[in-house]
Amino acid sequence: MQRRAHPALIAFAVLTFLFLIGPLVIIVGAALSDTSYLTFPPQGLTLHWFQNVFEISAFKRTMITSFQLAVGGTALSMAIGIPAAYAMARYRIELPRFLGNVFVLPILVPEIVLGFSLMKSVAVGSGVPIMGALLLGHALLVLPYCVRVVGASLNSFDFSIEEAAVSLGCPRWKAFFTVVLPNVKPGIIAGFILAFITSLNDVSISIFLTGPGVSTLPIQLLAHMEQFFDPTIASVSVLLMFVTVAVMAIVERTLGLTFLTK
């Protein structure tokens, strides 16, 4: 016997789905509209606005900056985050318990507060160049993802394996690279991707740290919108969305999305 879902339940599920997917449909539609202002449903179809994105040099420039930041910030964050996650997993008993929560703080503190305090302390306070401040800010922003996701992998790692390598004549530092890292690689890749996307889409930290001549794509998007209310904005959004979806698709294909929700 098959149980049938209550019609109201189905209706509720459909509404939720529409609520989630609706804005995405609207933005794609708006990006294709053959008008000089944002509108939905699209009137006429054109790819002109996508072309426009690559013709406006500010978009091109900030897009490169955004990718540089996402790669650099995540790499920097991993360089700090992996050893931290390792220490917390390896010496779980010896280390104070609150330490794990410290690494989630950048998520818990409202990003706008984080951005503001970074501007005060790093960008203005110590005269670090804009790109450097942005790099630090983004590294801090994505650190929780790196520590948490890599940490989840390390927590299920049997450290006897590392000891086995040491007993077979492998120095500890070398055992970390030859035995530990290869076995938490899925966690590192997943953490990297999650952090990459977070950095790429960030507004609230970047808005405080960008300055003359240096901006990121989402910030440029805001600036553009204040002057021109044309479908270029929608096109940039669609492009960002596609990058995100593509990256997620790679994760799903290689590791499975369930990995991120662990």
Binding site: S160, I161, A164, A165, L168, A175, V179
Partner: peptide
């Protein structure tokens, strides 16, 4: 003496094989 210089063959309760290596590479590791 550091653990890696002690020249001791160790067998663990959890086996502690290297999951990313084949049987041959596990055995050849030392």
């Amino acid at each position: 003496l550091p653990a890696h210089s002690r020249d001791i063959g160790l067998v663990f309760q959890t086996y502690a094989l290297f999951p990313h290596l084949s049987v041959r590479d596990n055995v050849a590791f030392g």
